[in-house]
Amino acid sequence: MIGYSTIGVKDIEKAKKFYTELFDAKVQVDIGRLAMIGKAMDAPMIAVCKPFDGKTPSCGNGSMVAFSTSSKEEVNELYNKAISLGATSEGAPGQRIDDVFYGAYVRDPDGNKMAFYIFG
């Protein structure tokens, strides 16, 4: 249902490197101040951009982009990979909501919050 989510960044080249390495993905579209990163044009993507208004990007309080995975192991791998690429922890991988939700939380180098998760 979601085509892409956009987050504001300070350094577009650093952000492209972080997200392409994190997800083993490619820059699918690059228009200078905005780049869309994903596995394919017809798959969900993350877009990184310098804000259109030219002001400093900021992270929304309570805003987060969540990335679905196929296993608890993949949650752990993405969390550890994000940390190794310069992200900071916002919640180590673990079971949440009984046996329904397993997730981990990080902030990218610009402070944008993201989750890696699996239901079940």
Score class of each variant (00 low, 15 high):
S63R: 05
M36P: 00
A115V: 12
E21S: 11
N80Y: 08
E74D: 08
E21M: 11
V27E: 05
N80F: 00
V27M: 07
D53F: 03
P44S: 13
D42M: 08
M36Y: 00
V65A: 10
M64T: 06
F119I: 10
F52R: 04
G91N: 01
T69P: 07
K39T: 12
E21N: 14
G111I: 13
I7W: 03
V65H: 00
E21C: 02
D30L: 05
P51H: 02
S63K: 00
I2M: 03
M45W: 01
R33D: 09
K14S: 15
E21R: 10
L22H: 09
P44Y: 10
K81T: 09
I37H: 08
F119W: 12
L34H: 05
G8K: 09
G111C: 05
L85Y: 04
F101D: 06
A25F: 06
Q95C: 01
N112A: 03
D99I: 03
D108T: 11
K113D: 01
S5A: 15
Y19C: 07
N80G: 03
C49A: 15
E90A: 06
G91K: 06
P93W: 00
A43L: 15
G8S: 12
A82T: 02
A47M: 09
S68A: 08
M114N: 05
K10V: 13
K81N: 12
S58V: 14
S84W: 07
A40W: 04
K39C: 09
M45P: 04
F52Q: 09
C59E: 12
G32P: 12
E74K: 08
Y105W: 05
